[in-house]
Amino acid sequence: MKGISVQRLVADDIILRQEIAGKGLSSLGDLVISFTYDELRDFIIAYSLVGTSEGTAGSLSETLTGLKGSPVFEGAYKYVYLQARKTKHREALQACEQAEDFVEHFALNVHLLPPGIQNNEDVSRLKVILMDVSEVARFRRAAVFLLNRQYLDELLNIRILIEHLNSLDSQAHRRAVETLFSRPHDFPSRSWEKRLNGFVENVCDLGLDDILGDYSPEWLVFLLHASSLAGWYERQRVSILFNTGKREAKLQGALEIAGNRKAT
């Protein structure tokens, strides 16, 4: 692993923790390192693949394909892709993007892309994923990722999700919200409604001050989208919340953004 620093392993989430060893003189200056074996193994494999690639995407693509079905495939692919993005390794990036299941890998790993290397192609890929609710797990993963990205200075942020929800007609909007709050093997089949109602109640229970402190206008638009399919009681609570805080800039901003919604 020559050339790989401890700091890099920490930054890439390979090493979970580094801390100063015990207080005894014999261990002065030593570090105690904690790591997950599988992650470190997959990272080393990926580091080796990218570092020893022969300069063509085809050879690396063949190597990755050969790993399919093995326990190391997903992890090695993930770190090859992340290294390719961070180092701008054109051949490695091309090899990853040529994989037939690239979109699935992208959806699994997009949350690991630092803001500094996010680009417009990532935005386009997420928009395509959001359009296909038939790929339930992929859609939900992308939506939840964006929902938790409230900082608009990052290219991949919650606004992508809100613009998508705003663009949907009533039928597609209902299906998107239902998919977000559904879980595999739900029984009864309308369990998503109970889950949705609980989400709305939990937010409203926070109180106006905490809501204004914790959430952006775009996140509050998501609350409006979700609550539009909640029960009568939950919809009333959201209505009271927005009426109580009608002079607050964040709530006013949320209502303005929500006003661009296609579905009625």
Rank of each mutant, 00 (worst) to 15 (best):
R138E: 08
F222H: 04
Y233L: 15
A142I: 10
A249V: 13
L67P: 04
A249D: 05
E74Q: 08
N148G: 10
R41L: 13
D101S: 14
E163N: 14
L16P: 01
D153L: 12
V200N: 04
Y81E: 09
Y215W: 09
F145K: 06
R41N: 06
S70P: 03
R125M: 05
R159D: 15
C204L: 00
D122A: 11
R247E: 12
I160D: 09
R41I: 07
L161V: 02
P71C: 12
W232M: 11
K2N: 08
Y81D: 12
E97I: 09
E39T: 12
Q7M: 15
V32A: 07
L126Y: 01
A95H: 10
A46R: 02
E19D: 14
A84Y: 03
I211K: 01
T56M: 05
P115R: 13
L60F: 04
L251E: 10
G198T: 05
S5W: 00
K88C: 07
Y77P: 00
Q150P: 07
F102Y: 15
K127M: 08
L9C: 00
R190G: 09
I45V: 12
L113I: 12
S228N: 07
Q18N: 06
K78H: 08
D169W: 03
R235E: 09
D153Q: 14
E163P: 00
C96A: 03
R261M: 07
F181C: 10
K2I: 13
Y79V: 03
K262G: 01
R190Q: 11
F187H: 09
N120Y: 08
R237M: 09
I45A: 09
V72Q: 14
D186G: 11
V123M: 02
L112V: 11
N202G: 12
A258P: 02
P114N: 10
N202V: 02
W192T: 05
D38E: 12
S61G: 14
E91Y: 15
L146F: 07
K250M: 05
L64N: 01
G253M: 05
L255D: 04
V133T: 14
D214Y: 08
V221Y: 02
T179Q: 04
S228D: 06
N109G: 03
E201K: 15
F187M: 04
R85V: 15
V136N: 09
H185Q: 05
Y37F: 14
L28K: 14
L16T: 03
L165T: 02
S124A: 13
W192H: 14
Y47H: 07
S239N: 03
A137C: 04
I257E: 08
E74Y: 12
E234Y: 04
E154D: 15
V144H: 13
I4T: 04
W192E: 03
A11Q: 15
K246G: 03
L130H: 14
Y215T: 06
L9R: 00
Q98T: 09
R174Q: 12
L168H: 01
V144P: 02
A258Y: 13
Q94D: 11
L255M: 08
G198P: 05
D132Q: 12
L224F: 04
S61A: 07
D38G: 14
F145G: 10
P184E: 02
K246S: 06
E218Q: 12
N120H: 10
V177I: 12
S53M: 07
L152H: 13
L212D: 03
R140Q: 15
Y233G: 06
E62C: 13
E218V: 01
F73T: 02
S124R: 13
D30S: 06
